[in-house]
Simulated assay, not measured.
Amino acid sequence: NSPRKTRRHGPDILRTTELGCPNARLEASDNRIKVTIRTAYGFHHANNIIALIMLRCGGLDIHLPQPRT
């Protein structure tokens, strides 16, 4: 069973090693998306969930206004 899987996914494995993207980074982004979806439970439209995922995982550096002291 394992050699067949390796043969079947061989091109994907080679592509991943050529890109140099570590598995930990992919797992971290996958987990972040799962947590975001769990947080968005109850949203009425899928577009809102997609927007929230893109906001959290898009890499934007948003600075919220701070109260004046």
Results as ranks from 00 to 15, higher is better:
69 T>Y: 14
56 R>T: 06
22 P>K: 03
7 R>H: 02
23 N>Y: 07
44 H>S: 14
13 I>C: 02
36 T>Y: 00
64 L>Q: 06
32 R>S: 14
25 R>E: 13
52 L>T: 09
16 T>D: 13
51 A>S: 14
57 C>W: 00
7 R>Y: 04
57 C>N: 14
51 A>Q: 13
58 G>Y: 05
46 A>Y: 07
33 I>M: 10
3 P>I: 05
25 R>H: 02
50 I>G: 00
38 R>M: 06
25 R>A: 12
17 T>F: 11
5 K>I: 01
14 L>Q: 05
42 G>E: 02
27 E>C: 03
61 D>W: 04
23 N>E: 13
45 H>Y: 11
2 S>E: 08
48 N>G: 13
34 K>P: 00
7 R>I: 05
42 G>Y: 05
66 Q>Y: 08
46 A>F: 07
1 N>E: 07
6 T>P: 00
21 C>V: 15
3 P>L: 10
32 R>N: 10
62 I>M: 11
37 I>F: 09
67 P>W: 03
35 V>D: 14
20 G>E: 03
23 N>K: 12
9 H>E: 11
11 P>F: 03
22 P>L: 04
5 K>T: 00
28 A>Y: 00
11 P>V: 02
22 P>S: 11
59 G>C: 08
65 P>G: 04
66 Q>W: 05
53 I>M: 15
62 I>L: 15
52 L>W: 01
21 C>L: 15
24 A>E: 15
24 A>Q: 11
57 C>R: 03
10 G>K: 09
4 R>E: 10
26 L>E: 09
43 F>H: 09
28 A>T: 06
19 L>D: 09
40 A>D: 07
5 K>C: 01
2 S>N: 06
48 N>Q: 14
16 T>E: 12
51 A>C: 04
20 G>Q: 00
63 H>G: 02
2 S>H: 03
53 I>L: 09
17 T>G: 01
47 N>I: 04
49 I>M: 09
26 L>G: 08
29 S>N: 10
8 R>K: 10
